[in-house]
Nucleic acid binder design. Structure first.
Lengths: 343, 343
DNA sequence: TTGAAAGCGGTACCAA
DNA sequence: TTGGTACCGCTTTCAA
């Protein structure tokens, strides 16, 4: 037993009574081979259970079929979806994904790229990391490897990035509410340092202005992403500004919290039906990274960021990209979809 | 421009004025090298930006440093966490992860393994796929590669698997409720075909019996994993069995739904405080794949399956494993943790 | 302490 | 239509 030697092309050649070059040709279907030889080789491959050693192929000069992916946090739903889309698309094209998680800090990212380069990847995708993009791309280019970025927001660097259209997403949500008849719309959630939030706010404000609707900066509420805080915030907001009829929430947690807050407020104000209280008074719209089953029963209209599509898109781009032409690659912005609450 | 040739060990040797063998020795710190030469080589490495080609290393006979991972569904929180833990642990040990998603069907899984084998991985981890384990392990063993399984439940095959202790998790939840004074406890959610559910139910029933508490099979409710269904189910359950004081929920969606159901029921029954209605009447416990921030405000006691730890654990095992001794590897069962609702 | 050379498993060019 | 063979980048004896 012990170290079972792997079946190589030599073994196949021997078994089929041909040379290694012939086997190689059959394998890649390149040369003009007589069908008799072809079958003999294939039979040998089958019998011996031969699997082609991709490392050797890559070493000789071919492509390795590996795409490196550096993802900031795999457990974040957005990046999980993105990575899933990436893997899906890459697998469909016979490539595979080498995954690295970028735990902390900038130095580490550089090292991730080097690790990937050492593994002989054909391309590298960085998902959700900001800054230092130019230096990294240069490093990758030195090795003739395409480097692409994917992110939730626009990149601070001047590098190409595939990302969601946060402005359009906000416009979508806002217009939906406006078309439903809402005129006084507030914003709840997110931290002012968030770039994605800033982009969304841009779309939100622009849409309000465009429709000639009032916009007050004190209707824009920062809020920690917990249900408790969101519930408190929405109640206090509505108490101070009773004319507000709709709220756009920065994420699903905030939206859930806001809903609970409304439920409580409805109860406390003596309404006899929470649903009617909600329906007649306050409409909720919110951004979500993925259409979550968990949220199916909450009366919120969701604008979902197409994380999976972004993954697929960036995969397609890296497959198409020639290492030399990467400089021509421009940002590719994927639109969001609106999922209206039924009923 | 165009195809920038990668810096090789030859270039380094040339630049440092030594032979390739010397460079190799310095790189791996193996031979006894004079510090003068060592420094000259390192300087050249630095200047040229050399990165060692792992494919060549692996081809020559060393380990590739790659671990293949086949995961059923990356977007499922349990498997996302598991994969993250896996990646974390592997990276800390200088390995990396080649990720494959097993979309559908059995044939495909076999192909995934072959793909991984062709890439020259040192080991393969299959996360969340059942059946056909024996055949796959055999295939891997032929190539001298260790194959390990990780899963949410016990495996139907007779192969080693790292998995959560579903029985213990259920025991944990049940005992917690009992210690809180609950005597009449129901079960809500999950499909009867689910193996994980069956295991949990085992722990649940055993604990009840152990404490001499009543157990009625009609207190075990199957339920689709949506909030709406769970809300309906919990209300109808309590209406039929008003003596029940606690419910164990099969997952977080069901728990959320149950809570909403209780809220509604409380309101309809004319209670003036939902919280007190809930607190005084029905306690909820539930299983969750990860401690989710989203759930921070729901009065549910969670038993979290340690997905990340399972990932880490299986990574450690595959790093430790010698290809030949895999048959001695037994199932490794990771206990769950209880997160009591504060207040 | 260092260098020369033989592979690892393929590919592809050049002959036959 | 096939076979011989020189590599790809690196490790590792074996000599020097």
């Amino acid at each position: 037993m012990s170290l079972v030697k792997r079946v190589t092309i030599n073994d196949v050649a021997l078994a089929a009574g041909v040379s290694v070059s012939t086997v190689s040709l059959v394998l890649s279907g390149k040369g003009r081979i007589s069908s008799a030889t072809g079958e003999r080789v294939n039979a040998a491959v089958e019998k011996l259970g031969f699997v082609r050693n991709q490392q050797a192929v890559a070493l000789r000069g071919g492509h390795s079929g590996r795409i490196g992916v550096i993802v900031h946090n795999l457990c974040h739903p957005f990046y999980a979806e993105l990575t899933a889309g990436l893997a899906e698309e890459l697998e469909q094209n016979g490539r595979m994904l080498m995954l690295l998680q970028e735990g902390n800090g900038g130095e580490r990212l550089q090292r991730c790229v080097d690790t990937l380069l050492a593994q002989g990847v054909d391309g590298i995708i960085i998902a959700g990391v900001s800054g230092r993009g130019v230096a990294l791309r240069e490093r990758a280019a030195q090795s003739g490897v395409t480097l692409l970025f994917a992110s939730r927001d626009s990149h601070p660097d001047e590098v190409a990035v595939v990302r969601p259209d946060n402005q359009q997403a906000a416009r979508l949500a806002t217009e939906y509410l406006i078309n439903k008849g809402h005129q006084r719309i507030a914003w709840l959630g997110g931290h002012s340092a968030s770039l994605a939030r800033a982009e969304r706010l841009g779309g939100f404000c622009a849409t309000l202005l465009q429709y000639g609707l009032p916009f007050h900066s004190h209707w824009i509420i920062e809020c920690e992403s917990t249900q408790r805080r969101a519930a408190e915030a929405v109640v206090s907001l509505l108490r101070r500004n009773p004319t507000i009829t709709a709220v756009v929430c920065h994420n699903s947690t905030v939206a859930m919290g806001a809903w609970f807050g409304l439920l409580r407020a409805g109860r406390q104000s003596g309404e006899d039906s929470l649903d009617s209280y909600y329906d007649s008074r306050i409409a909720l719209a919110a951004f979500a990274d993925v259409p979550e089953m968990m949220l199916d029963d909450v009366p919120v209209t969701w604008v979902t960021t197409p994380a999976r599509e972004i993954g697929r898109s960036v995969a397609q781009r890296i497959l198409r990209a020639e290492p030399t032409e990467q400089d021509t690659a421009n940002s590719f912005i994927v639109p969001a979809r609106l999922v209206a609450h039924k009923g």
